[in-house]
Structure formats: C-alpha cells, structure tokens
Write a protein that binds this DNA or RNA. Structure first.
Lengths: 253, 253
DNA sequence: CTATCTTTGTGCACGCGTTCACAAAGACAT
DNA sequence: ATGTCTTTGTGAACGCGTGCACAAAGATAG
C-alpha cells in the first residue's frame, strides 16, 4: 500500500532552481535552431524572444550554469548547446519504456520528437496478450508479465505510463520495483511513489479545464453573470449514477 | 509578424489565483470518484490525500471559491462537485477543434477522457487533402482550407494544435483569426498570440528532459563527477549539419 | 592606450504561493 | 443547556521566482 507521497523529491539538489531547469529545454530548442542556421553567437535579448521569455530571466538562468557569455558580444551558440545538453544529461543515452500501447502509447512510440535528444524507445509493453509481438513503430510489443526483465535488461530508468487510469498505479509500482526512478504519467491518476522517484504528469483533461476556466472568464465579462451571488438549490448537478437516491442536499451556506 | 507575446494574459482576472485554478481539476476528479462511490461528505484531510496535495493548501484553495464546508463535518461531495464544475465552466458545452490529424491528433480524437467533462470534439482538421472525408474516431476529417468556416460554424473557442512544429504558428494564427481564444499546443514551438488569447503547451520532449536532469542528478551522486570543474574543449557537440565548417570554437571562460 | 559602446551578470525589491498554527464554528453527547 | 470534540477558514511568516536597474567586463574604434 503506497502512502500518498507525490512530492517531487529533492528538486533543489544543489543550486539550479526547478523553474530554471524547466526552461532549459526551451533555450536548448531555440539554440539548436540557431545552430542549424550556423549563427555563431546570440545575445540574451535575441535568445529570450526566441524562447518566449524575459531576457533578464534568461541571463539569471544561465548564471546558475556558470558564466558562459561574453560581455558586449553574447553567448556562443554551439558552446551553450553543449553546456545545456550536458547539464540536462542529454549527452548520454536514455532508454525509455512505454507501458500501455493504446492509441496514445502508439502515437508516442511513433512520435519523432521522442528520439530526438538522447531518448530512445527501448521497449513497448502492454497487458493485452493479443498485442504481444505486434510491431508498433518498428518495435515488437512485449507482454506485461515480462516487465521486470525488460526494464532490467534494457537498463530503463525512465518509464512512460499510457495505460487506462485503473491500471496506472499498479504499473507504476511494478516499474518502480523493477528499478525505474523517473515516470512520465499520461494516465489521469495521482500516482503514489516512494521517496527518490520523480513523477511528472501530462493531463489533457486538466489542461482543457484550465483553458475552459479562462475562457469562461473572458466570455463572462458581458453575460453569464446570472446567478453569481445566489448559488442554485440543485445539489444534483446531473443524473449521477448513485445506487439509490440518497444524495445529501445539505446546501451549506 | 507576430511579436513574441506568450505571456499568460490576465490570469488573475479577479480573486482566485492561477495555482489554485490548476488544482481545481484535481479536486474535481477526486470528488467525482467519491461521488460515484456515493460518499456523502469528505474532510479536507481525506480529499487532500486523494488529490495528492497538502490539506491546508486545499482548504485555502476552497476558501477562494467561498465557504462551502461545514466545520466539524467536512465538505458535501455533490455540492462541491457542482461548485467546482461551475467555477471551471464545465456546466456548459465546449466544442473543441483538433488541427493536425497525425498519430497524436488521432489519438487525442479517440481519447475518452477528452469528452468526459463538457468537452466535445467538434471538428478534425488536417492539411492533407487525401485525409479529407476520412473518418477518425467517428468524425470526418476536414481540410484546412475550410478552417475559418469550421471554427465559426461550430462556435469553437478552444483549439488543439497537433501539427508538425513548422506549421504550428501558421495554424495558430488562422485559428485566432477565426475566433479561437484558447489554444492547447502539442507542437514543440513557442507560439506567438495576441493579447487575450490563452496558450497552454504540452511538450513531451521537455518533460523527458526535465526527468533526465533529475535522473542524472540521482545517478551522479556516485560516479559521473568526471569533468565537473574543467569543461571540455570540444565546441562541437556532434556533427552538426552546418553548411560549411565555420564553427566558432570560441570557448569562453 | 584611451574612450566609448554593447552586453553580461547580479544585487535588490516585490509579489505570489505555500505552510503553519490557531481561533471560530458547528456537530454531537450528556 | 452546556461542554467537548472535530474540522474549517484564515492571519501571518517564510521562501521562491520574477523583473528592474545598474555596475562590471570586455570588445571595438580611433
């Protein structure tokens, strides 16, 4: 039974803030584009606009990595690409395992941007025996029974969960038990992991709901101010699937 | 030429902080699960652990919505589900258009959690003429040429971009011109949008890179402290596709 | 060698978010 | 009616992240 520990563990390992780490990939992408255009140097102002951030923020971010700029000139593109890549750990190979080869899992396996920077889809795992052996994106799907061995054999430390929500926690536990210490979770579930395991979640539904909130705010400037002050009596928002009609209808406040 | 304005516009419309808005979907999900189990009330402590957050944080979040709890008892599940749904704008229907029906776009169209709460896939749009008319997830794909009309006819205000990165900005501009004011961007690009348009990005590559950073930190406690102090001379991280061999090799610091 | 000009690196202040800790409020038993 | 007990709601302190504004550094020209 996993105790609800979902904190990101030891984010601030030493120095370099989490917010900066989250922006480094943005900088790296912009720098790579410049590198492909053979641009030798770039100023903080140019790079900041390319990455969509403030220039002061960018300079402060880079200051955590070291003094890699030249005053009056800017930053050397190639050198900075290498430094950020090294800092992010992209100079080494990261075998990744995707668990749950449904629509989304298959799409991720086929996603080109996946393997772009050091990440390599090392294994596809699914619980459906009928899928075992089926090639997806040129890789044969393997069965969940062999999960432990697959993770070990390939030295996978990063797992991607694209299973239905009901199976996510179980898959997560098995991945962690097999040695995975970083998990990218696409299932709409709160995963409980032991200390030392990182979990990042990608949740379409949440993103849409946040957008809907702002959208409502934008549209609500004129109309839709109907019952703002007086909350409606209806304690049943819709026909919820309750076993009996025993819904509270307390209506506090 | 879009000026690089990627700030989230007017997040703090009135009251309710952005961080709280981002957590409301989590609470809603946990509450819905409780509702389906016909649990009448729940304490902040229980709900907090179910949602994977701190109980004090949850109470403060709810305090922004109003005083919906009963001291000594907790929160009424059904009532809270309705209040949060209303606050997030989930009581109304949100037609969504997905642009770019590749692997990812098709997966999203088939994604069940999409239509779960008020969101309805109203249109699928792709630039490939060969795809026009092809049904994906039971919806016929339409061509980009009709984008403007499709958005208008269906009253779409939320667009999802799953195109290749090169086409993302152009698609974004067209969506905005057609009246879309909220965009969920899966393309690895920094989108420039005018004031009043919300953009949220989902970037697998960035998530993986952040995980790799922490992974490297975890693994780097024992070994991998090789050349920390002395950065390598190699200014060319790999064989970059430069037109000529004119790479700077400046090596500052 | 000196002056000027550009751009970095950063000290500082401010605002947001998180967490603690506790008083107020209500349920429940007697 | 009174007391006890549970749980909410929130004031206050703290820490992190952001942005301003400027001094230091180095390039470049004369």
């Amino acid at each position: 039974m996993a105790t609800g520990r979902t904190h990101r563990p030891a984010t601030r390992s030493r120095g370099i803030p989490e917010a900066t780490v989250a922006r480094l990939p943005l900088y790296l992408r912009a720098l790579t584009a410049l590198s492909e255009r053979s641009v030798p140097t770039v100023s903080s102002e140019e790079l900041a606009t390319a990455a969509g951030v403030n220039s002061a923020k960018l300079r402060k971010d880079f200051s955590y990595l070291g003094s890699y700029g030249t005053r009056g000139v800017g930053y050397d593109v190639e050198y900075l690409v290498y430094q950020i890549s090294r800092e992010l750990g992209l100079t080494q190979d990261w075998p990744v395992a995707i668990v749950g080869i449904g629509n989304l899992g298959a799409a991720l396996a086929n996603y080109g941007g996946f393997a772009s920077r050091g990440f390599r889809v090392a294994a596809l795992i699914d619980a459906d025996p009928a899928m075992a052996g089926t090639p997806v994106a040129g890789i044969a799907v393997q069965h969940t029974d062999d999960l432990d061995r697959i993770i070990s054999d390939n030295g996978v430390s990063i797992g991607v969960i694209t299973t239905p929500p009901g199976a996510a926690q179980q898959v997560c536990d098995r991945l962690v038990a097999a040695g995975v210490t970083s998990i990218l979770n696409f299932a709409p579930t709160v995963l409980s992991v032991p200390e030392g395991v990182d979990v990042r979640k990608v949740d379409l539904s949440i993103e849409l709901q946040i957008l809907a909130f702002h959208e409502q705010r934008k549209a609500g400037e004129d109309a839709a101010a109907e019952d703002e002050g007086a909350p409606p009596i209806r304690a049943t928002p819709a026909s919820r699937k309750g076993p009996d009609g025993d819904m509270p209808a307390v209506m506090p406040a």
